Each structure stands twice: as C-alpha cells, then as structure tokens.
Amino acid sequence: MIRCLIVDDEPLALDILVDYIDKVPALHLVKATTSAFEALSIVQTEQIDLIFLDVQMPELTGIQFLKVLNGKCRVILTTAYSQYALDGYELDISDYLLKPIAFDRFYKAVSKVQNQYQPNVQQVAAEKPQSLSPDFIFVKTEHRIQKIFIDDVLYIEGLKDYISIFTPTERVITLQNMKKMEEALPAGRFARVHKSYIVAIDKIESIERSRIQISDKIIPIGDTYRENFYKQIEDKNI
C-alpha cells in the first residue's frame, strides 16, 4: 500500500486527486491539504510514501517544498504550467502531471512510482482500478471552473485563442488548446478528426464523403487525421 499526501491550494484540484486515489486500491490517502506548511508537518510525523504536489502555492512553492523535503519521499508535481518541469526533474521528482489531469495519465504516473519501490510491494498494475476513465473533467471558463461530464460531450471545436465544448444542452468556452484537451479526454472514446475538431465516437450519427454528422452539425475529416480516425472506427465495427 502506497501512503499518499495531496498538497494543492485549489480545492477543486484536491477533489479530483482524492477521487483518482480512491479508484486505485494500491493507494491510501493519508491527507489532502491546501497548506504546504501543514503538509511538511505531516511528512515529519506520518509515514508518507508519495506526495502529489502543486507548484504554485502562496505559502511555499512546490519547488521550495521539494528542497525542504530533501528526498524524504516520492513526489509527483501537478500544475498547469509546463515550464516548471525542468526544475522538478533536477530535484528528482518521479513524474510531472499537467492540469487538467486525465485519469489514465494519473494511473501511468502512479505505476511508475510503484515500480521505483522495492519488489515486495504489490504491483499497482496488477490491481484493477474501479475505472480507467474519468467521469468528468474541469475546465476554466471566463468566470469560473466548470465541471463537464464526459458522457455529455458531443464534439469540441478549436478556434484561434480558445476552444468550445458542445453538449446537448450548452456550449462551454474555455481558454485551452486542442492538444491539452485531447490528452485530458479518455483514450478510445474520442477522436481528433481535424486540426479544429475532436469528436465523441459514440455520438457520431453518420460518416459520408469525409464528413461526420453529430446532431445537426457537419464536421469535416482532415487529411492528416483521416487514416487514424478510420482505423478507430474500424476497430469498433461489428
């Protein structure tokens, strides 16, 4: 059993990681806290094997926390900013997760940590998690962070400076790029079909002449993505 600590000053980020840890039987959550100083105290008094550590925190940054920790336990950094990756790896972190964090990427990082422990610890990969796909994602809109259920997503359209997520009832606009959104979605359920479109495979109504119909929307299939898309579709053919 890997004993975990979560340190993040965003309550929503804490909730997501708590949910993910609960899905993996080999992980045990000792504490989730928004305070870096409380986390340091816990590390001194409790057995902690793995810390999920945010980088940007008001009391103490994640990089400063790592320096104080001095290799006492394994650390996975979590942040929305990739520029901190190099600093983290120089301080011997186990992995680096970019927000929004998809469950399959989280699971891969946890498996890597488990493999760094002694052989007598049971393999995380051998223990089946409750689910390999997240039920929802959180996205930042202009005024709030919004929860979107994966099953509700019809398709995603990328524009110059933002993307739109379409569901049967609404359009959610977020300042995000297509690559990060594609990585956050569960593999196998969505397909990138164009530089500007990601579609939910189970929401496709028909495909004709390099065009996809989802509800009343016609979506083009780009030349770059055609081969991979049709391969995904063929894998689901009966």
Rank of each mutant, 00 (worst) to 15 (best):
I165C: 13
I76R: 00
V124K: 09
S210L: 12
Q146G: 09
D22L: 05
I221G: 06
E170P: 14
Q116T: 14
P11R: 05
T34F: 04
I163Y: 08
E208H: 14
P220K: 06
G88L: 07
V199Y: 12
A32E: 05
F190N: 01
M1S: 10
D161I: 01
L98K: 00
I76G: 00
D87P: 05
Y155C: 04
V68T: 12
V199D: 12
L5H: 13
E182S: 15
E46A: 10
Q47P: 02
L98D: 00
D19Y: 13
V24C: 05
N120Q: 15
E208S: 12
M1H: 08
I204V: 03
V30E: 14
I150L: 13
L185T: 06
I198Q: 08
G71M: 07
E234A: 09
I93M: 06
E127P: 01
S41Q: 10
A109C: 07
Q114V: 14
I238Y: 08
E90T: 10
K108I: 04
K67N: 13
T45M: 14
A109K: 09
K203W: 05
Q176K: 15
K31T: 01
D87L: 09
K195V: 06
Q123N: 13
K203Q: 15
A191P: 05
P134M: 09
V193W: 11
E90N: 11
Y225A: 03
I76T: 01
D104W: 08
D8Q: 07
S35D: 03
V124Y: 07
A187C: 02
K203T: 05
S215Q: 12
L185Y: 13
D223N: 03
E157F: 04
E183L: 01
I198L: 13
V75Y: 09
N115V: 02
A80Q: 02
A80W: 02
N115Y: 09
T167V: 06
V113L: 07
V75P: 02
L97E: 07
N70W: 02
I156L: 06
E182F: 14
K203P: 04
I145P: 10
I21H: 03
I219H: 01
I219R: 11
E10G: 08
S215L: 02
I93T: 13
E157S: 10
P100V: 06
G188F: 10
R192V: 08
K231D: 07
F37E: 14
Y230D: 03
V113G: 06
L175S: 15
V153S: 13
R171I: 15
V24Q: 04
Q213T: 11
F106R: 13
D152C: 09
Q118S: 13
L5W: 11
S94A: 14
N177S: 00
L27P: 05
I212S: 04
I150D: 12
R211N: 09
P11E: 05
A187Y: 05
P11D: 04
Q176N: 14
K99N: 01
I76S: 00
L40P: 10
L27I: 03
K236E: 04
L17G: 05
R74D: 15
E90V: 07
E90G: 03
R105M: 06
F190M: 08
A125Q: 10
F136N: 12
